[in-house]
Design a protein around this nucleic acid. Structure first.
Length: 436
DNA sequence: ACGTGCGGGAGGA
DNA sequence: TCCTCCCGCACGT
């Protein structure tokens, strides 16, 4: 579009500043929510947009007092990295999300790298003239105006969802460990104090072996039994419910691995609502690269498939009860717990991308129901050194995504060319419910 | 426990 | 005056 084509209204749409006394109100088209706003961008969201309402960002943004109650200002905290600059399996780096709360962040920096146990360090954001990138939010009329100043000079951290998921899983891990240990203690009348934290003592109830059994033996039943209207949110809550004290339940459920119980656990747990940005966010994938997600999306788009429509009733090209692939045999079996860097979709910075609907928060939030029953991936064992809840990104170009996990990824991709949204969601399921 | 928003206040440019 | 940063508080999840 040539500049001449802009009428005065269009110009108004582009020229506003968050500090203007009057902001444009005759907005014809609001933007899709942008999860990774960068550079000096402006967006106008609908006031109905839940993500915008919550002033969400996948960058770790903390509130900054600008002494202006009408304009909310947030500044970027940067990213937490391993001070040894260690490299995880597959060449991935550790990019953790800085805790927003100051105390939590201090605590976080005292923790060790989940990959190499080295000290962590915070890389501050200096993308705005040496100061952190700032985001501004202003509610005005039917719209929420967003403005970003500065360009992030650091890698992307985990998303909020990933961070929460990791915390949750860690909690669940601890709970199951201590529960297991208690049970073991009763049986063996002795235990080592340090073991509760170690992987070695972990899997008495929720073991790798059981996970594999679950995958191999129960996926069909899960598929057959679980209703459609379940979601990953439930799954997360499910894991939370385990993490928050359902220790006996955990033992019960894991000992029987009754998929109905599993599902009921999910269903009964009150879940928070995730935006579609969460659901569709490419960075959320762990098993498959974002690049592959993108390809999947592109395939879907090129096939005229609407991921929204597909999400509820996936048309899998194979019987649901037979899963075409054994992922546990992957040589890179630890990968599901690592996070690849989200490859920015080609249209991510445009206001609306039909090929990459990661930004359509509320629409998807309301419409998408995620299949809990699509599959339960096979689970994999991790060496004691690996933090099974580790999520990290790799700030490398797309080529990285093809190797070395390419064979697995493409095997999967080729067998499952139409997974679309469920593809993503099931990855999330795997990430959030490692069932170990 | 942690995220989020708000506000007071200090200190620097 | 404007900015960042620190702190505490309240509230929600």
């Amino acid at each position: 579009m040539e500049p001449d084509d802009f009428d005065s209204e269009d110009k108004e749409m582009l020229s506003w500043d968050i500090n203007d006394i009057k902001l444009p109100q005759n907005v014809k088209k609001t933007d899709w929510f942008q999860e990774w706003p960068d550079s000096y961008v402006k967006h106008i969201y609908s006031s109905e947009d839940r993500s915008a309402q919550r002033h969400l960002s996948s960058w770790a943004m903390r509130n900054t007092n600008n002494h202006n109650s009408r304009i909310l200002k947030k500044s970027c905290l940067g990213v937490v990295v391993c001070s040894r600059d260690c490299t995880a399996d597959g060449g991935r780096k550790i990019y953790l999300r800085p805790a927003i709360c100051d105390k939590a962040r201090q605590k976080q920096q005292r923790r060790r790298c989940p990959n190499c146990d080295g000290p962590l360090k915070l890389i501050p954001c200096r993308g705005h003239g040496g100061f952190p990138v700032t985001n501004f939010w202003r509610h005005d009329g039917r719209f929420i105006f967003f403005q970003s100043k500065g360009e992030h000079d650091h890698p992307k951290p985990e998303t909020k969802l990933e961070s929460e998921a990791r915390r949750t899983m860690k909690k669940a891990h601890m709970t199951s460990s201590s529960t297991s240990l208690n049970q073991k203690g009763r049986l063996e009348t002795k235990s080592l104090p340090g073991e509760t934290q170690s992987q070695g003592s972990l899997p008495l109830t929720w073991s790798f072996q059981e996970g594999v059994q679950l995958s191999g033996s129960y996926s069909g039943r899960l598929i057959a039994n679980a209703p459609q209207q379940n979601s990953l949110n439930d799954c997360l809550s499910f894991s939370k419910s385990y993490g928050s004290g359902g220790s006996t339940d955990l033992a019960d459920t894991t000992s029987t691995l009754d998929p109905t119980k599993l599902y009921e656990k999910c269903k009964l747990s009150n879940s928070r609502i995730y935006s579609s940005a969460d659901l569709l966010q490419p960075s959320f994938s762990g098993v498959y690269s974002d690049y592959d997600n993108l390809q999947t999306w592109n395939k879907n788009a090129s096939l005229g498939r609407n991921p929204i429509n597909d999400s509820c009733c996936p048309n899998y090209p194979f019987p649901l009860t037979s899963w075409p692939g054994d992922f546990s045999s992957s040589p890179n079996s630890s990968e599901p717990f690592f996070q690849q860097i989200p490859l920015e979709p080609p249209a991510a910075k445009t206001s609306c991308s039909p090929l990459w609907p990661n930004s359509g928060s509320d629409f998807y939030e309301e419409k998408v129901s995620v299949d809990f029953n699509s599959y339960v991936p096979s689970l994999t064992y991790h060496s004691p050194q690996e933090d099974p809840f580790l999520l990290s990104y790799t700030p490398h170009p797309p080529q990285q995504y093809s190797l070395p996990g390419k064979s697995r990824i493409w095997d999967f991709e080729e067998q499952m060319p139409y997974m679309g949204l469920d593809h993503c969601n099931n990855e999330m399921l795997l990430n959030l419910c490692p069932l170990r």
